[in-house]
């Protein structure tokens, strides 16, 4: 199992992500954004979190034109598995690989804290180790995490089981930290091979550090 992790100027979660996947037994490689291809033995491509290009213009807007993104798009379109975490989610929506967009948090504050999430659809490789309705505790750390999609887009997301996770409280009741439409924290594409979420499962790998709920999430990718 080989996990390739993208690195743009300003990415800062690539080593956490590498550590998380290696602790689960995967081989990893960090891929600089100037690369024009994705390694042929890639099983999962992760667009890691951070502040690519300083979030200039819009989060993820400049990164989508990095040389590597053409290869990422080709990889995704041919069925390759892609996971975008935080800034990676923003990059994937900007690149048109995931529906919707991420706006500034409603509160206008940068949020950095643990938050509970409810599993909405587990019929995909990312969440299949969890059950629908399960509540996980995973850190969030973002300024632009306010998920937006128009009414028709939202309907389509529900029809195709593309809503992965929603923000909630400890009991699983709706609790929205950033103003996201329907409290959505993560979505996938129709084909269910491209995944994006604002919370950081790679930061929830050790009970000692607050939660190890990220293990079950990332493990889903490792059995393929």
């Amino acid at each position: 199992m080989k996990v390739v992790i993208l690195q743009f100027p300003g990415t800062n979660c690539e080593y956490d992500t590498q550590h998380a996947f290696e602790s689960l037994g995967a081989k990893t490689e960090i891929l600089w954004h100037k690369s024009e291809s994705v390694p042929s033995d890639t099983d999962l491509l992760v667009v890691a979190g951070g502040f690519s290009y300083g979030d200039y213009l819009r989060s993820g807007a400049i990164a989508k034109f990095s040389p590597v993104m053409q290869a990422v798009t080709k990889y995704a379109k041919s069925g390759g598995k892609v996971l975008g975490i935080c800034n990676g989610f923003q990059v994937l929506t900007e690149a048109g690989l995931l529906p919707g967009a991420l706006k500034r948090n409603d509160s206008l504050h940068f949020l950095s804290k643990h938050h509970h999430l409810k599993v909405v659809n587990n019929d995909n490789i990312f969440l299949e180790k969890l059950c629908n309705g399960d509540v996980v505790n995973v850190p969030i750390a973002h300024h632009d995490g306010n998920y937006y999609i128009d009414e028709n887009g939202l309907k389509e997301l529900y029809e195709n089981n593309q809503v992965l996770l929603k923000y909630c409280d400890e009991e699983g009741n709706d609790k929205n930290p950033n103003g996201s439409v329907d409290s959505i924290a993560g979505v996938c594409n129709k084909e269910k091979n491209v995944f994006g979420l604002m919370p950081h499962p790679e930061r929830a790998m050790e009970k000692l550090l607050g939660s190890d709920n990220g293990i079950k999430m990332l493990q889903g990718f490792l059995q393929a």
């Binding site: 807007a61 967009a101 706006k103 937006y148």
Partner: peptide, 8 residues
């Protein structure tokens, strides 16, 4: 392509 995100 770049200056605006026409989704929002």
């Amino acid at each position: 392509d770049l200056l605006a995100n026409t989704v929002i």
